[in-house]
């Protein structure tokens, strides 16, 4: 027992919730900008001309599944089953990476067809919203990799488990943002 200055677990998770709140506002403002600019096509193509239902369904399926696998990884680690935890994390990584590949393919396709972020206000907002989410997913992938290393090297000690729980939270958060993108950006154009 020490009267350490070290933050207790509850402080860290409270701080992390505050960060998520702040990040949610950041996304909210980008969403608001997207809505404001959704008609500013400047003679360029709109969502109906660009989006593909197949791509969207695949991306959504990958990300939603990865939310399940990351939860399973956390669960396994809590029960100190390191092997399954690593497998689930690796699967989450693969699903997230797959999502990113699809996203990059979609966006670079748009750029190649002349519908890049500098084509119109609408596309600027679209690319910014998607890439901000994509950058978060990329950061999440680095985090997953780091957690796999830590599980291997340190085992499921309390600090590692606490980090894993925040990773899970972060990953679910990205899922929620994606559902927002799905409903605000894609749905009105595709249906």
């Amino acid at each position: 027992m020490t009267t350490a200055v070290r933050h207790s677990d509850s402080e860290v998770s409270f701080g992390f919730w505050l960060y998520l709140m702040s990040d949610a506002i950041l996304f909210g403002l980008i969403f608001a900008t997207f809505v404001v600019m959704s008609t500013n096509l400047a003679g360029g193509p709109g969502g109906t001309d660009l989006f593909s239902m197949t791509n969207l369904s695949m991306q959504t399926a990958l990300l939603l599944t990865s939310s399940l696998t990351v939860a399973l990884a956390h669960h396994a680690a809590m029960e100190e089953r390191i092997g399954p935890a690593l497998v689930w994390l690796a699967l989450t990584f693969a699903l997230g990476a797959g999502f990113l590949v699809l996203e990059v393919r979609e966006l670079s396709g748009f750029v190649a067809s002349g519908a890049g972020p500098n084509r119109s206000g609408y596309l600027s907002a679209f690319f910014t919203l998607l890439s901000t989410h994509g950058l978060h997913v990329s950061a999440g992938l680095i985090w997953i990799g780091t957690m796999m290393m830590q599980l291997l090297l340190k085992g499921p000690n309390s600090r590692v488990l606490s980090r894993l729980s925040r990773l899970t939270l972060f990953w679910h958060f990205l899922d929620i943002v994606w559902i927002g993108i799905f409903s605000v950006v894609y749905l009105p154009e595709l249906f």
């Binding site: 600019m37 500098n118 119109s120 910014t128």
Partner: peptide
């Protein structure tokens, strides 16, 4: 960040042309 994108990448968030606002 949006202003930086306008200046560096050429997006149209706040430009007079290209549907900026």
């Amino acid at each position: 960040a949006m202003l930086a994108l306008d200046r560096t990448v050429g997006t149209h968030f706040f430009t007079n042309d290209g549907g900026g606002n």
